[in-house]
């Protein structure tokens, strides 16, 4: 299935990319993270386990166990710092 993956702030900068279509077999956010880390390079670094990566699925705050379905929009970003 295809997922629309978006990156923000320090993660966007490190990847040099703000969005991409990802062909994925993941059932949830954790699975997608593993697929992206497996690409190695900057992906493995900025999305490494233990790094403070936050996620939203279809523009709602999500967790590693949140399911992802075909066509979903998944956003990865660092902890938020607005206000």
């Amino acid at each position: 299935m295809n997922l629309q993956v978006r990156y923000f702030a320090s993660i966007r900068e490190a990847l040099g990319l703000s969005s991409e279509m990802v062909e994925s077999h993941a059932r949830d956010v954790a699975g997608l993270l593993n697929e992206l880390r497996a690409r190695g390079g900057a992906y493995a670094e900025v999305l490494a386990e233990g790094r403070p990566v936050r996620v939203a699925v279809n523009q709602v705050m999500a967790t590693p166990s949140t399911p992802v379905a075909a066509g979903a929009e998944v956003g990865f970003f660092p902890p938020v710092t607005g206000g």
Binding site: M61, V80, G83
Partner: peptide, 9 residues
């Protein structure tokens, strides 16, 4: 807003 709205400085 400080912890749940997606803004980055």
């Amino acid at each position: 807003l400080k912890t749940q709205a997606p803004f980055w400085k």
